[in-house]
Each structure stands twice: as C-alpha cells, then as structure tokens.
C-alpha cells in the first residue's frame, strides 16, 4: 500500500485499530494468582486475635477496643465491594452481604422458610406465643421477653429511641437471630402483614465466605446506603431470602417475610434488618434512632 493511503487509513481508523489491538493483548492472569494472594495475606496478617473474629468484635474492651475497627470495617468494605460486583455481572454467580448474612436474589426456598422453627416445647422461661402477638405466625422463633432476650443474645439489644414507638410487643429468638415485633400503631409505618406494625430483626452471625451460588436476578432493588456512618443496603421489591452463619457454625436460610421493604445495616458487628412499609428516609431515621 502507498504511504499516503496507509496513513490516511490509519488516521481515520486509529481508534478502531487501537481497540482491536487491545483485544489482541495477551496478558492473562497466571493460574493460582488468587491463592498466592491469599497466602501472602495470611502470612502477613498479625496474629493478634486468637478466636473467631466475631468473638473479637464482641469481646472484652467494648466499643473502640484496639484492633477492632480495621477488621470490622474491612469486612463491611468487602460486602460493599461485592455489591458493585452484582451491578457489574448480573448473570454471574455472586454472593454478597453484610457481616452476618449474605443476600441471594431468587425465589425463596421451596421448603420450610427457616430451619429453626420454634420448638413446640420451649424452655419454662419462655412464654407461649399468643395467637394475637404480632408476628407470631411468621416463624420467627420462640417467644421470649425482652429481658430474657437481653440475657440470651451475645449483643446489646437496641430499641428505637422514639417514645411513640416504645418497646416491642413481641420478641422472638431463634439461634443468633432476634426478632422484635410491634403491633399496628398509628406511630408506626405498618407492614404488608396483618397485625404487624414493624419488624426489626437482629442477627449475630458472620458472612458465609464460600457463598458463591447461582443467583437469579429478579429485579429486586438494592441500593447501598449509609446508616449512622455505617454502610447498609436498602432492599425494595421482589422476594429475597437471606442466609447467614451463626457463631456456632450452623447455617440458617431465612426467608424474608414480605412484610415490606427492608433496610439492612450493621452496628458493632451485629446485623440489623428493619422491615415494614417504610420509605428509605423513614427507615434510616428509625435505624439511626436505635439506642
């Protein structure tokens, strides 16, 4: 080809040619890169914690204990980073979540919604769920009093500060999952479930790291939000269920009960899920009032 013709052609098509060249660049990751990175991280990780990290979080020292924030924050960040993966690759198999749970999009499990249904004969200290108690028919666990719950869970039970909301009308405990239920009340946003004004689920658990499963995207809206400076997610729309690993290692599939939208966030290593017919603003205000 003549020099002129060559140059004119290259000039006109330079950008196309560069993209074509980009496609031909041959620099794949060598096999085992991820494993080598993991080995490096494990080798460099300080051996300061002797137990599982959720115990470190909960352990002596209280809020602000040295060495606590970096680890908690990193796991939150990993969850946040995973959200971006969802956006980037809807059809790929993705698991993600806050510490304590991961979110899978898809139809709820066909079997019983929870592997931890309330036992027919609970301990003597527990009340029998009254048929009229809000949320009693949702399979949230065995009914306990708020005081009992405070003694049985490994985290501090926080309640909305709004005096108009007051203490919950019913409390359910199932493994590391505590559910606080309020009955219908003008001060509450209400839920799609009859007899339930608001539901707050508190989970003591950890993310399931091996959580890469085939997901089906169903159009559920997930929006990363900030709750009192901590990352969280606003979930609105279709069915979703959650899966988390309790500190004892057991896995619980937890179908969300379609009582409304849900706000998820973490505080002091504990995962909170606020459910009801709330707007995002209402949910965040309520979440930030927990004390």
């Amino acid at each position: 080809m003549s020099e002129d013709r060559s140059m004119s052609r290259l000039g006109l098509e330079l950008e196309v040619a560069l993209r074509d060249l980009g496609g031909a660049i041959d620099a794949p990751a060598a096999p085992g890169l991820a494993g080598r990175v993991r080995a490096r991280i494990e080798a460099e990780r300080p051996a300061r914690a002797t137990g599982p990290w959720w115990r470190t979080i909960k352990g002596a020292g209280g809020p602000g204990a040295p060495g606590r924030m970096p680890r908690v924050r990193r796991s939150l960040l990993l969850a946040a980073a995973a959200v971006l993966l969802v956006a980037a690759a809807v059809t790929a198999a993705i698991g993600y979540g806050l510490p304590g749970l991961r979110i899978l999009f898809g139809p709820p499990p066909s079997a019983a919604p929870s592997s931890s249904a309330p036992s027919p004969s609970g301990p003597a200290t527990s009340m029998s769920p009254s048929p009229a108690a809000p949320g009693a028919d949702l399979g949230l666990g065995r009914s306990v009093t708020l005081d009992e719950a405070a003694g049985l869970v490994a985290f501090e039970v926080a309640l909305p500060a709004d005096p108009g909301i007051g203490p919950p009308d019913a409390v359910y405990l199932s493994g590391g999952r505590l559910a606080l239920a309020w009955g219908p009340d003008p001060a509450l946003p209400g839920t799609a479930h009859e007899g339930l004004g608001l539901l707050l689920v508190v989970i003591d658990g950890r993310v399931e790291p091996e959580s890469v499963e085939k997901l089906i995207h169903t159009g559920t809206v997930v929006e990363p939000v900030t709750v009192a400076g901590a990352p969280g997610y606003w979930i609105a729309g279709a069915h979703h269920f959650l899966s988390y690993i309790a500190p004892d290692g057991s896995r619980i599939e937890d179908t969300m009960r379609d009582v409304g939208n849900a706000l998820l966030w973490t505080r002091d290593g504990v995962t909170y899920r606020l459910e009801g017919e709330l707007t995002l603003d209402q949910a965040i205000r309520l979440a930030e009032s927990l004390s």
């Binding site: 990751a29 990780r45 002797t50 599982p52 790291p209 890469v212």
Partner: peptide
C-alpha cells in the same frame, strides 16, 4: 481469625485478576 474475610477477598481477587494483570 478473619479467615472468612480472606476468603471473601480471594473471591474479589478472582473476579479482578485478569483486568489487574492486563
């Protein structure tokens, strides 16, 4: 301690390793 986070991160590494090497 932290093994779950390391594994979660390993998953991120797998997703981004090709674009990182490139």
């Amino acid at each position: 301690a932290g093994a779950g986070e390391v594994m979660a991160y390993e998953e991120l590494v797998r997703r981004y390793q090709d674009v990182a090497v490139r």
